[in-house]
Amino acid sequence: MKKLLFSLLFIFSSLSAQVQWFEYDKALQIAKDENKILMVMLGRDSCSVCKYMKTVVFHDKNVIKKLEAGFIAVYLELDFDDIPQDLTYIGTPTFHFLDKNENAVYRFDGGKTVPSFLKALDEVN
């Protein structure tokens, strides 16, 4: 019975290990329902900074917490995904923040380390 308890807890806890990425349309719908801000990351596989964001920053517990609290995350790969026309970029990664009506509320270009990324998220709100 203990085992069951632990395996259940394990299943529960393994669900919260990383940033949840949604598809754009789904994310937009959730953002509408929950009145959250859409964070769209434009990236490229070949981009070293994007790799850093993916392997380090988006595994940080505080980043995950903050994103989950107020944002819905979307990752768009410039090589394969259709990029909405409004989401411009001069390079990758570029972060666009949109409200539930898809109006731009904030944007920053380039990757950030954990503390400055958290700070940037604070500025969005």
């Binding site: 070949s46 070293s48 900074v49 001069i90 390079g91 990758t92 380039g110 990757g111």
Partner: peptide, 12 residues
């Protein structure tokens, strides 16, 4: 060519 800035942006 393609490159990045040390400040954390990779250009197209």
């Amino acid at each position: 060519y393609q490159g990045c800035s040390e400040k954390g942006l990779c250009y197209e």
